[in-house]
């Protein structure tokens, strides 16, 4: 750092944290809406609102939380409810493996905390942006900013949902936010034959395996896409400094 460097160039903990928050901000409306929907379902099923809110604190994965509520509503055995939720969340093993090299230099307590806060959306944002942060401390702050603010709005949405009850009419079909959110993140940066093959194989496998229970078709589709894409050669020589992960590295930030 030279004396002529402007203040704007000086890395600060707050700036990296908020860069992470800004990068995930476009996906936050989806988290608020789904938090609202989950919270409203807590009221409909008749669960204590505080317990429902704590569900969002402890699990932080909307689809599996809704599956737990549906199991409770159907008077399913507790063990079935837990297993269903854990199977739905098995995809996090893939995100976790992808995060391993990114989190590798972090202290163990940060690995534990950032793994606890991991969501589909913040994992995607981390994969897109981590190369901008070769310094592990700055990278950790960025990841923390993306993860904690995203979970924060999920909890705010849940709190509003358990307080207000079902305020979103069914006719609005807010479920559409899920494909819309991931299309918006996936498509702008999609490039390279391996990533395109991974996407195509994953999508086809999901619909072919649609009769699998517990949403296992999503996990199977992901694995099939990854396996197929890994065997497709890159057209250009791989650049070790900019590994091609088939994702945009300039999208989403500050949009």
């Amino acid at each position: 750092m030279t004396a002529s460097a402007s203040a704007a160039e000086i890395p600060s903990a707050r700036r990296d944290f908020w860069a992470g928050a800004r990068a995930v901000a476009t996906l936050m409306p989806g988290a608020v809406l789904f938090g609202l929907a989950f919270g409203a379902l807590v009221r409909v099923v008749g669960i204590d609102p505080v317990t429902g809110f704590m569900g969002s604190v402890m699990v932080q994965a909307g689809a599996s939380q809704i599956a737990i509520l549906e199991a409770l509503r159907a008077n399913a055995p507790a063990v079935i409810a837990v297993i269903t939720a854990v199977v739905i969340n098995a995809r996090f093993a893939l995100w976790s493996a992808a995060m391993a090299p990114i989190f590798a230099p972090f202290p163990t307590r940060w690995k534990l905390w950032l793994s606890y806060l991991m969501t589909d959306q913040s994992a995607v944002i981390t994969l897109q942006h981590h190369e901008r942060y070769p310094d592990p401390v700055r990278r950790r702050r960025f990841v923390h900013g993306a993860e904690s603010t995203f979970v924060g709005v999920w909890l705010i949405g849940t709190a509003a949902g358990v307080t207000l009850g079902p305020v979103i009419p069914d006719a609005w079909q807010i479920g559409f936010i899920v494909p819309l959110m991931f299309i918006s993140v996936l498509v702008p940066g999609l490039h390279g034959a391996p990533a395109l093959v991974a996407v195509a194989v994953a999508a086809v496998t999901v619909v072919v395996a649609k009769d699998l229970p517990y949403g296992l078709n999503v996990l199977l589709g992901s694995l099939a896409g990854i396996a197929a894409g890994a065997f497709v050669p890159d057209r250009r020589r791989p650049d070790p400094h900019h590994p091609d992960d088939g994702l945009a590295h300039d999208a989403a930030a500050g949009e």
């Binding site: 995809r91 893939l94 995100w95 493996a97 992808a98 391993a100 090299p101 589909d120 994992a123 995607v124 994969l127 897109q128 479920g175 899920v178 494909p179 991931f182 299309i183 993140v185 996936l186 999609l190 391996p194 990533a195 991974a198 996407v199 195509a200 194989v201 994953a202 999508a203 086809v204 496998t205 999901v206 619909v207 649609k210 009769d211 949403g215 078709n217 999503v218 996990l219 589709g221 992901s222 694995l223 099939a224 896409g225 990854i226 396996a227 894409g229 890994a230 590994p243 091609d244 992960d245 088939g246 994702l247």
Partner: peptide
């Protein structure tokens, strides 16, 4: 290389499941 494809593959799987299917049916 497979790990680098987790993002695109998992997102495509989530999109296909949410968009093309509704509780397991078309």
């Amino acid at each position: 290389k497979g790990l680098s494809l987790v993002g695109p593959a998992a997102m495509a799987a989530i999109v296909a499941n949410a968009l093309l299917l509704d509780e397991g049916a078309w």
